[in-house]
Amino acid sequence: MTKPTKITNSIRALRFAHGELTQAQLADQIGVTRQTVIAIEQGRYSPSLEMAFQIARVFKVPLDEVFQYPDGEEESS
C-alpha cells in the first residue's frame, strides 16, 4: 500500500510500552475515531500538529519520540 506521507511514528510501540493502551483508548483520549488512530499508525494519515502534540502528551514524551521525519538525503530521493 502506498504511504502518502514520509512521516513515520512509534505509536504502536508506545502504546505497548504504556500498559498496552488500546487504539480505542488512545482514540478516546485525543478525540478521534479508532479508524483514525489505525490510519495514523499505518502512515495513511498525517495528523495535524495539534493532534500530534495531543498524542505525545498522552504518552508523556517529546513530539520527536512519537513522530520521525527522514533527513535530507532520503527526502530528496
Binding site: R34, A39, S48
Partner: peptide, 11 residues
Amino acid sequence: PSDSRKRDVRD
C-alpha cells in the same frame, strides 16, 4: 456496528 457515530477531523 461502528464504535462511534462521531465524525472526526479525518472524516
